[in-house]
């Protein structure tokens, strides 16, 4: 999967302007914003601290993945607060966050940034706001389903179902590595299961269907 390049910018007469290549100009009217979005996300991500962000950019500077992101973590927070719901939920940023918590321990406002990203991921998954075949939400879903079924996750099966659903050719690319792991006993074939799977099912939110309530 290739990473996104910033969209090319054209001037009004259609000619591309070299010096403005990185700038995306777009006007969004306040009536198009989801003004409660910020508060909703803040409530889901432990407290209203998100709203007190001072936009210092420490999170973006600390993030090891920020240079692959379309919007840095600082921008995501600003946009969330202002109600740019579609832009935030469509961004690659929320999927690139690998939950390393580097930003969170540095944040001078103690914002739970990783929890904000999780809240945004949940929002995006439940509203179907992610690029098709992007493997990360698929991984999350496959992982969830597998654990609901067995209580444990068998890595080999998880990866196989991930590749089948996103990019079957990837399986060929990974076959050699899989073999090298297999001969060293690092890929298990048998499935690990818990005995009291009835407990798992009872614990889940009542009314959640067997597949975890996930449509796709």
């Amino acid at each position: 999967m290739s990473l996104p390049t910033p969209p090319a910018v054209q001037s009004d007469d259609g000619a591309s302007i070299e010096s403005m290549k990185q700038v995306v100009r777009r006007i969004k009217f306040e009536s198009e914003l989801d003004l409660e979005f910020g508060e909703r996300v803040a409530a889901k991500a432990y407290g209203q601290k998100l709203l007190s962000c001072i936009q210092c950019g420490t999170c973006s500077a600390t993030c090891p993945l920020s240079h692959y992101m379309d919007y840095t973590p600082r921008k995501i927070i600003a946009m969330t607060r202002e109600g740019f719901r579609e832009e935030v939920l469509n961004s690659l940023t929320i999927w690139l966050c690998s939950s390393c918590y580097a930003c969170q321990v540095q944040c001078p406002r103690q914002i739970h940034i990783t929890d904000v990203m999780y809240a945004l991921k949940r929002e995006a998954i439940s509203l179907g706001f992610y690029p098709r075949r992007l493997p990360i939400p698929v991984l999350a879903r496959e992982f969830f389903k597998r654990v609901l079924k067995d209580g444990r996750n068998t890595e080999s099966w998880l990866l196989i179902s991930l590749y089948l659903r996103t990019n079957p050719f990837r399986m060929l690319k990974e076959a050699m590595l899989g073999l090298r792991l297999f001969v060293r006993g690092r890929l298990t074939v048998g499935r690990e299961r818990v005995r009291r799977r009835d407990q798992l099912r009872a614990i889940l939110t009542p009314g959640r269907p067997k597949n975890g309530g996930l449509v796709k």
């Binding site: 998954i125 992982f143 009291r196 614990i203 975890g212």
Partner: peptide, 21 residues
Amino acid sequence: DWNCCGATSYVSIDETDAFAL
């Protein structure tokens, strides 16, 4: 009879269920 912790994946689907498991 431990079960999977959920890593970074359950919580992207449903937080309450993730914590509960």
